[in-house]
């Protein structure tokens, strides 16, 4: 079943097309990596997918619901972590998660129980009653991730979720993402960290200048682009994006 479907998706800002003619389908239970150099249009694509931007052309559908036409149903199905986590500094971590639970219609008791588990998973339980304004960058990402996971969405859209994480936290989150994927959650992961994409993702897509230049598993890309058997995703990425730039 296709959980994320982008069809002819495009967005222009004046003369600049940030994203153009994007066609992409991500299946249920897939961990999908979304890669691209700075300014390639990754964040714009994600904002189109979650409904924060209106597409100039095409459509984006989450769990079969068009994000513009059936916005509420689509939003119920997705969890989103922005590149800079969206948090309320004057709430504590626990209060923030209860607020998020309320927005997703979770009863307080259930929301609190899930929050407790997530805070423990992210090792934030000791800081759960501190105001978010006192959290470090990594902790802010973790609480943002807790918020995205709280309502157990079938589709997770994560924009650079591992930025600012220490190695231990990074490892724990990677394990958690794999666990979610195995449980059937569809994860759309935008990242700069190619080794993470290589380790975790079932398939990857590479975006450059707003256009999709490659989609497939890492071995498929390797087979298509080079005769080197052990070529890394980094060398494939550089080969693809530099060819694009030269073109």
């Amino acid at each position: 079943m296709t959980m994320i479907e982008l069809a002819g998706l495009g967005k222009n800002f004046g003369a600049l097309w940030a994203v153009k003619d994007l066609d992409l389908a991500v299946n249920a239970g897939e961990l999908f990596g979304f890669l691209g150099p700075n300014g390639a249009g990754k964040t714009t694509t994600i904002r189109l997918m979650v409904g924060l931007l209106r597409p100039t052309t095409g459509t984006a559908a989450i769990a079969g619901h068009d994000i513009q036409q059936e916005s509420l149903a689509a939003r119920r199905s997705l969890g989103y972590l922005a590149q800079t986590p969206l948090l309320y500094d004057r709430l504590t971590g626990r209060e923030f998660l209860r607020f998020i639970g309320g927005l997703y219609d979770l009863p307080d008791g259930e929301s609190d129980a899930r929050a407790r588990d997530l805070l423990a998973l992210m090792e934030l339980d000791a800081k759960a009653d501190d105001l978010i304004e006192s959290y470090s960058g990594g902790m802010r990402h973790k609480i943002g991730l807790c918020a995205a996971l709280l309502h157990r969405p079938p589709v997770l859209i994560l924009d650079e979720p591992l930025v600012g994480m220490d190695p231990a936290s990074s490892r724990r989150i990677k394990d958690a993402l794999l666990g979610l994927r195995d449980g059937g959650t569809t994860i759309f992961l935008s990242t700069h960290m190619l080794e993470i994409a290589e380790q975790l993702c079932d398939r990857v897509a590479i975006l450059d200048h707003g256009q999709l230049i490659a989609v497939g598993t890492v071995p498929e890309l390797r087979a298509a682009l080079t005769s080197q058997a052990g070529a890394s995703l980094e060398s494939l990425f550089l080969q693809l994006t530099q060819t694009e730039t030269q073109d």
Binding site: G51, L52, A73, R75, R76, A82, L86, Y88, I100
Partner: peptide
């Protein structure tokens, strides 16, 4: 943070 509210149902 309005984005957070916009993404929520």
């Amino acid at each position: 943070n309005l984005a957070l509210l916009r993404v929520a149902p």
